[in-house]
Design a protein around this nucleic acid. Structure first.
Lengths: 342, 342
DNA sequence: TGTTAGCAGTCAAACAATGTGAGTGCTAAT
DNA sequence: ATTAGCACTCACATTGTTTGACTGCTAACA
């Protein structure tokens, strides 16, 4: 049975109210606050029907209704109102991104921080793994007698570098030559391609073999470490949510956050979408994960692609979260383009 | 009044028992389990006295005694037994440090992880700030048209590097020359000295002025950012502790962990000591911090100095924690020295 | 003087009994 | 199709009661 207009309005009322108060709502309360043209009895009939259809449920028989995951999905899909950011919210975002950013890491951290501050939820942010980056050049610099620095430039203009102890002591010139040789060999290839180095390099000149091995090892590390780095901000805010007053649930949630790597698939899975809302029914998220929702947005800045979002109870202010994420996305983009605007 | 032998034994009994069970202990229980030669009445007298002296307290008048912060301090100072690590604990540590370590970051993370796993407490780890490092050389490498990499080598053989957008496009040779010039200028000086750059450099050659500014900025960042990076592991384990079953206390604790930077003074303050145990009375720790204890050890490896430890309720198994930290310290040292041992 | 047995007193925690009220489902009238 | 009205359900708060684990104190004892 398709949803009548009226049923949809009732779902919206229940979700809106529950997002606001985290309390079951009764038929008469719906009438008073949302649908005064109907009587509570009529609404009761509809509520019964919606419960039958799986959108609503009640904690116990003499309580009001609360939304199910189904209802939330419907809500974010069709019913959600558009939230306007307040002046102070905008001000906070601008304040955070006001100063010039130095490096990737602090950008990610800042983004996480501002999201958490405005939404009052736990936020997550990460940069995408590098395995699909195309290598442009590799540079090796000798910094002390036994240590060399490997710098890899990729198409996303991210430069990733790693130190490696070199077991032999050679001239700076040697490294310069090796850099050129290796750049030529790897240039244009994806980082992930180094998984089978044979294909790339049929004939490594013997003199550069050791350096070659070292580079392969570094690239492999980046290629395999699929998880990027995940930054969390405001974990303790989880406990502000009334749904996690029960110790057990709070713990399940915190454990999920503790094992950041488990979050990664969820974060990256958003496909081509710019914005993704995942609402966990019972077992949709990784096992053991408590009922929760994750909203993430992809962002891009200076060629770097990442995601950021919030994680919290299903009952969250989706509308606000979405507009915050959208606005931050825009801000990052404009930072990218016009660098020095005020 | 000094503590009699017997009073000390009673304190030890109370603390031992409370660490084990987190329950107030009664006079008769002390008699049964710890001091069968005395009668419960005698013990009651002593308990009264110890309460008077500030070592013990009782949650309510008809309950047993529990230790105060004072008692814990006394305990770790004088009374604590020596814990022997079990085979499986040793195995876990060896397992973690079995593979060769690539970089500083993963060492810190690994250390935190193993500590948390064995002690079942939340662990913290960090490397010391760099402000006291002595600069040995500075190297600047051009990696793309607009980006240069600054590499700073210090006496602790840590090499710290930062990217900076260079607003002008110059030759590689220029950077090579600049590196030499700047290395000479900064070499032998502490990072913190750049706070007053005038003292260092009376006459910067004009051609290098921009590079000079950039280096100053980077060094200042490192010098001021006193907080190093703090890694936490197992935050959710906080909630395993019975003292944090109350939501309010749990939250206070998690907020403390969330604001990692607030932890830094506590971590670094351990002075010359190799092992430091901080037990917070009411307001000893930063405001808002709940009653808790922090045990940290300094470690050194490949010239890098850092601290690692645990944070948890006052009621923790100090004896075990101490031996774990000591053993890990030793392990790190030996990794350093004999690199390739099995 | 230090130790001990015994007893009266205290108090948290567990349990049971009870009332209250919010909210529903159903039925019958509109 | 809607609505008013009523009977029914059930969480929750309130209150009173019992229980038992402790202690502190006193008086006897070595």
């Amino acid at each position: 049975m398709a949803l009548s207009e009226r049923k949809a309005m009732i779902i919206k009322a229940v979700v809106d109210s529950y997002i606001d108060s985290c309390q079951p709502i009764s038929s008469s309360e719906i009438r008073e606050k949302y649908l005064p043209s109907l009587s509570s009895a009529t609404i009761r009939n509809e509520l019964s029907a919606l419960e039958e259809m799986g959108y609503l449920t009640q904690p116990h028989i003499s309580a009001g209704r609360i939304p199910t995951a189904e209802a939330y999905k419907m809500y974010v899909d069709k019913l959600m109102p558009k939230h306007k950011l307040t002046k102070s919210e905008l001000a906070i975002i601008r304040h955070y991104f006001g100063q010039k950013l130095t490096d990737m890491d602090s950008l990610v951290r800042k983004t996480a921080k501002v999201i958490s501050e405005i939404t009052n939820l736990t936020s997550v942010a990460c940069v995408r793994p590098l395995s699909n980056d195309v290598i442009q050049s590799v540079k090796i610099v000798k910094v002390t007698d036994t240590v060399a620095l490997f710098i890899i430039v990729t198409d996303r203009t991210i430069i990733k570098d790693t130190f490696a102890e070199v077991p032999f002591d050679v001239s700076e010139q040697y490294f310069e030559d090796a850099s050129k040789f290796i750049s030529e060999m790897f240039g244009g290839h994806k980082i992930s391609e180094v998984e089978n180095p044979e294909k790339l390099a049929k004939d490594v000149r013997q003199e550069y073999e050791r350096v070659f091995e070292a580079v392969i090892k570094i690239l492999k590390d980046y290629s395999q470490d699929s998880s990027g780095e995940i930054v969390l901000e405001g974990s303790s805010k989880i406990l502000d949510q009334p749904e996690y007053t029960s110790l057990g649930k709070a713990k399940a949630m915190l454990q999920l956050l503790d094992a950041k790597e488990r979050l990664y698939p969820v974060l990256s899975e958003s496909g081509g979408m710019n914005l993704s809302i995942k609402i966990a029914g019972d077992n949709e998220m990784a096992e053991g994960a408590p009922e929760c929702a994750i909203v993430t947005a992809n962002y891009e800045m200076e060629g770097v692609i990442g995601s950021a979002g919030v994680i919290g109870p299903m009952r969250m202010d989706y509308s606000k979260v979405v507009s915050v994420l959208e606005y931050i996305g825009k801000t990052l983009n404009s930072l990218d383009n016009l660098e020095e605007e005020q």
